[in-house]
Lab assay of single mutants.
Amino acid sequence: LDMDCLPYGWEEAYTADGIKYFINHVTQTTSWIHPVMSVLNLSRSE
């Protein structure tokens, strides 16, 4: 699993305190969880 590779439309950013988060420019949303990890967690719960 390549954690450096973000899906299309996603960008890694940091808060003023240096905390990493992710921006989805396609849906105009943000997430604290890496988008690949959130997809993996969803697929495990099914």
Rank of each mutant, 00 (worst) to 15 (best):
A16R: 06
L6I: 00
Y8C: 09
F22C: 06
N24W: 07
V36M: 15
Y21M: 00
S43E: 14
S31Q: 05
L42C: 13
V36N: 15
R44M: 10
A16Q: 11
M3P: 13
G18K: 09
T29A: 08
Y14F: 06
V36Y: 11
Y8A: 14
T15Q: 05
N41Y: 06
W10R: 02
A16C: 07
Y14T: 08
L1K: 15
D17Q: 07
I33K: 10
E11K: 08
D2T: 10
T27P: 04
M37F: 10
S38K: 09
E12N: 04
S38Q: 05
I23T: 04
I23F: 05
T29Q: 00
M37G: 13
F22Q: 03
Y14E: 08
N24M: 00
E11W: 05
L1Y: 11
M3I: 09
D4F: 07
D2N: 09
I33H: 12
S38W: 11
V39D: 15
L6Y: 05
T27W: 11
I33A: 11
N41D: 14
C5D: 15
S43V: 09
I23G: 01
N41S: 11
L40K: 13
V39Y: 02
H25P: 11
T27L: 15
S43G: 13
G9V: 05
L1D: 14
T30V: 05
M37Q: 15
H25L: 01
I19Y: 13
M3C: 14
R44W: 08
I33T: 12
V26A: 13
H25T: 13
E11V: 08
V26L: 08
G9W: 05
R44Y: 12
T29I: 14
G18C: 01
P35F: 01
Q28D: 09
T15P: 08
Q28T: 03
V39S: 12
Y21F: 01
Y14V: 09
D2H: 15
M37E: 15
G18A: 01
T29N: 04
F22E: 03
T29K: 04
Y8Q: 12
S38Y: 09
I23E: 00
E46R: 12
R44I: 00
S31P: 03
A16Y: 07
N41R: 08
T27G: 11
S45F: 04
S38D: 13
I19W: 07
N24G: 05
T30I: 01
Y14D: 00
V36L: 13
P35S: 06
